[in-house]
Design a protein around this nucleic acid. Structure first.
Lengths: 186, 186
DNA sequence: GTCTATAGATAGATAGAC
DNA sequence: GTCTATCTATCTATAGAC
């Protein structure tokens, strides 16, 4: 039957959950495989059985959010007008941050994550498509700055300790009012 | 005549400059003393001669920006009305980011920096005073979220590769138009 | 003031026993 | 599938020669 320590979530699932928690607290570079193993009460070798490299754990954590990201980027690109596409992308971005606050906190603040993403063309192009959607056609300087501010701001709002007491639904509603006001329609 | 410390701009100054550059690229945790030493063409021991610990280098880099931060926080607190104080704080924040784009990039994205700051009460209280100025008296939820978004957004705008081609003056002017619109007067 | 040398700990990763 | 044991490389940091 079920073992006392390992809920049927399998090894990979437990490693990913532990990684999200530890990455969020110490960053990716600041989290060793030993820390993940200790957190799970197993040895490093047990972690290496599930993922043969640390980078694979980072990619698995990323994948948690990428499923949603791919979905709303594709949906946004199907919108008829650039304005509608940008709004769908912005809503998707807010939902993504809300739905994965821990993952965002874990990954948004480590250059190592950028390095890993840069080595995977599919991740690169996905981020490029999202940026393009938010920028719209022929963006002026103000638009570019607004996209930068909104993108970082939405992410920060999801992980800011100052807002830790705000529940998901309330935060989502507020961000969906604040965001569009900074990304006006053309 | 012969100074016991900074001979000809060398020493601490060179270490700090190298640290800012490398921290920005690899993060604090991702930057080893060996990397700093190699960047300067010296040995690790030479770096340890200038700073007895890695944490001291981080603090020295932080100090670059803290001088300006202390100045405008104090100035803002001297403003008669909370609205004016918040605007002075926001302008100061924008100027700080613009004036220290590299330092911000180096330090804003590493949990290790937070840990170091958390162990220094003077840094903690300074950040607390800045946040208080931006929030104003009795901030509602919307204000709290806006402060979070603006704070992160301004920082991101200063380091975003998407905006690397924007010169300081232009970026400052745009942010000073964008920011206040998100932090309305009471 | 800068170096060599090295300590002591820990990193990521692998091989093979059970 | 999880372990012990181990490898190599690198980490921060120190002691002391030049």
């Amino acid at each position: 039957m079920a073992r006392p320590q390992a809920p049927r979530g399998h090894g990979r699932r437990r490693v990913i959950d532990a990684a999200v928690e530890l990455f969020g607290e110490h960053g990716v570079t600041g989290t060793s495989l030993q820390m993940i193993a200790d957190h799970l009460g197993v040895t490093k070798a047990a972690v290496y059985y599930q993922f043969h490299a640390k980078e694979d754990i980072v990619l698995a954590v990323l994948e948690e959010a990428l499923v949603d990201l791919r979905a709303f980027v594709t949906a946004a690109e199907a919108e008829p007008s650039p304005d509608e596409a940008a709004m769908v992308a912005l809503r998707g971005l807010v939902d993504l941050m809300i739905g994965h606050r821990q993952v965002v906190a874990a990954l948004m603040r480590d250059p190592e994550v950028e390095r890993i993403m840069a080595t995977h063309d599919d991740l690169n192009s996905l981020v490029g498509r999202l940026t393009g959607l938010l920028l719209g056609p022929e963006p002026d300087l103000r638009r570019r700055i607004a996209v930068s501010v909104v993108g970082a701001g939405v992410a920060q709002a999801g992980i800011d300790p100052l807002l830790a007491d705000v529940d998901d639904e309330t935060l989502r509603a507020e961000l969906l009012e604040l965001g569009p006001s900074m990304l006006p329609r053309h």
